[in-house]
């Protein structure tokens, strides 16, 4: 997965991996395991998990802005069914849904 740029396209159904390692992770806890839709590909960036421990020479990884339905994220969500949340997720945290 690492280094694979634009593995997903806007509109693709994706799921954030459900994993709980230690370390500096930018995929928020509450979104792990949740399914959403790619809103856009944001380009390639250094991997924060590696950069946080001074490993700066690894290959860049893709970043995707993913849109989730709030009702999917929070089972007890009180709001409109159309309410949504957008989060940028690095490629190594995404799998096809």
């Amino acid at each position: 997965m690492t280094g694979a740029s634009a593995a997903f396209a806007a509109g693709d159904a994706v799921r954030v991996r459900r994993a709980f390692p230690i370390g500096h992770v930018r995929a928020p806890f509450y979104i792990r395991g949740k399914a959403g839709t790619v809103e856009r590909y944001c380009g390639e960036f250094g991997n924060p998990e590696e950069r946080s421990v001074m490993q700066e020479d690894g290959p860049p990884i893709g970043l995707y802005r993913v849109r989730f339905r709030q009702a999917e994220v929070w089972p007890d969500y009180r709001g409109r069914p159309e309410d949504s949340i957008d989060i940028e997720i690095y490629a190594n945290w995404l799998e096809r849904a």
């Binding site: 930018r26 924060p48 409109r80 309410d83 949340i85 957008d86 989060i87 940028e88």
Partner: peptide, 15 residues
């Protein structure tokens, strides 16, 4: 308004 959807942006990465 009740007819308006709310979209939250959790701005945690590069944008």
């Amino acid at each position: 308004p009740d007819g308006t959807a709310v979209r939250v942006h959790d701005s945690t990465a590069e944008l």
